[in-house]
Amino acid sequence: MSLNLRELSQRTQGLAPGHRACAGCGFPVVVRLLFAVARRPLVVVNATGCMEVVTTLYPYSAWPVPYLHSAFENAAATASGVEAAVKALRRRGQLDTHPKVVAIGGDGGTYDIGLQSLSGALERGHDFLYVCYNNEAYMNTGIQRSSATPRGARTTTSPVGRVQRGKPQPRKDLTEIVAAHGVPYAAQASISHWADLARKLEKGLAVVGPAFVNVLTPCQPGWDYPPERLVEVARLAVESRYWPLYEVEEGRTRITYLPREPVPVRAFLEAQGRFRHLLTDEEAVAEIQRWVDVHWERLRNKAGTGQ
């Protein structure tokens, strides 16, 4: 499973050019890597959201594989059906290929409105990979808070006002919630660490049964950074341990990337406009740093000595 960049670039089919993702958007990286590591034909089921909107404007499609969009909250349930059909058709000798079903949704469609259908599909044990492209808010509808939005972030429904300064609550830990289902594979990744991400997608595709990869994919308008700093912002999230890279395989937690010299979370916050109001508030920044430290420690304990 060793990948080098050259090999990867040759294998990348990618999304067809002309899709309408913003400059500096993170999710095309995820899809391109997914295609690059896939060794089986894929069928993609996509939740309503930015990805669906910018890649399937009729009569165009950017998808080089069979693709189905149904609704916002049901990507995992819809994928369940596709997977069930694959099984039944193969059993009766009506399908020669063995495609892998991949469901893709944003954090809105995954953490929030789609959590029930995701949980159901995980529990039923369907053979599919769910990829969450997590940009930490409802970006498609214009940057509203989600349960993936971190504490303090400014969104249009957690605005900065006189009595409230961005989102009051911390984000919820969906990767752990998924892992708690006892699925064969759950992982957290970032578009900044492409080899790590590619490996996780590859593992998720290879596993028989439900797999989940939660990928941090910054959103230029939502996070407010210069488009060319996409990868850098994502990297700061990892290097600050704000977004740890780890995987839970058959119940065993392993940190897959250990920042050698972790940068203070302030560096991550400073790289984006959505935290601008916090930067003069030392206590607020310290509070976020404490949250990061506590969660990192918790993860370290879970991972034990094996990182």
């Binding site: 089921v45 909250e73 349930a77 059906g81 997977e83 069930a84 059909a85 039944a88 029930q116 159901g120």
Partner: peptide, 24 residues
Amino acid sequence: TEFVPAESEHSALSACVGAAAAGA
């Protein structure tokens, strides 16, 4: 038959949509 005991009616019909779109 591949029986999908969904966790809600919304998901049940969603799974039907996926399966039917796949040709089942």
